[in-house]
Design a protein around this nucleic acid. Structure first.
Length: 203
DNA sequence: AGCACGATTAACT
DNA sequence: GTTAATCGTGCTC
């Protein structure tokens, strides 16, 4: 089960891709060392009509990757210090992507520790900027083709996640976005005993 | 050219 | 629960 997910996986409705990414494995190759983990939280950002999406004002230099073909990485910078990793979905010309919000680290823990200590392991990769720091993901990976056998970032199939194990809710961090986009339930989260969701999810 | 703000995090009280 | 950190981006003048 070490094969990259094919472009057809990403060339589908964004909500389905976001749901199906749960349980799959994010892999980053540093030299000959694998670093990564199981995807446990995602969010969907779908098209120019989605006022929470970076494409709400049309195509710009920053969001251009989202308008390209599916299966590419859209990596952007925010809050003056943080990087975010997304996967482009749907057909070329149709801007949409899935934000990777959290993974459970499984490979390359020593490399992750180098970049995340002195934080505790439980919080090494439980946020979108944290996992980018842990996997050393920044502007250099923007636009990378996840389906190119040569690229150093990709996704592999992993464990199956049943619907009973998935929590669905509103996307995080959209404060001044009009409804229904602020509250629409486009966030997908694996229920895990170990990694408790953030506030507002009182299970 | 200037400005307000952001798909967040970590360290506070 | 609150807030500083920190700068690229997109919008307004």
């Amino acid at each position: 089960m070490n094969e990259r997910l094919p472009r057809a996986f990403f060339d589908r409705p964004t909500l389905r891709v976001a749901r199906d990414l749960l349980g799959s494995r994010l892999v980053r190759l540093e030299g000959d060392r694998r670093v990564g983990g199981t995807i446990i939280e995602t969010e969907a950002y779908v098209g120019e009509q989605d006022l929470g999406c970076h494409c709400r004002s049309g195509r710009t230099q920053r969001n251009a990757v989202m308008y390209g073909p599916p299966g590419h990485a859209y990596v952007y910078f925010t809050y003056g210090m943080h990087w975010m990793l997304n996967f482009v979905t749907e057909a070329e010309g149709q801007p949409a992507a899935v934000l990777i919000r959290a993974i459970r680290p499984t490979e390359g823990l020593e490399l992750i520790a180098d970049r995340r200590l002195p934080q505790k392991q439980a919080v090494w990769t439980d946020g979108p900027a944290k996992l980018c720091q842990a996997l050393d993901i920044d502007r250099h990976l923007n636009g990378v083709d996840l389906c190119d056998p040569q690229s150093k970032l990709w996704v592999e199939s992993g464990e199956a996640i049943s619907d009973e194990s998935v929590t669905i809710g509103p996307r995080v961090g959209l404060y001044s976005v009009p409804e229904p986009w602020m509250s629409i339930a486009w966030r997908f989260l694996v229920k895990e005993p170990k990694m408790e969701p953030q506030s507002g999810w009182g299970g």
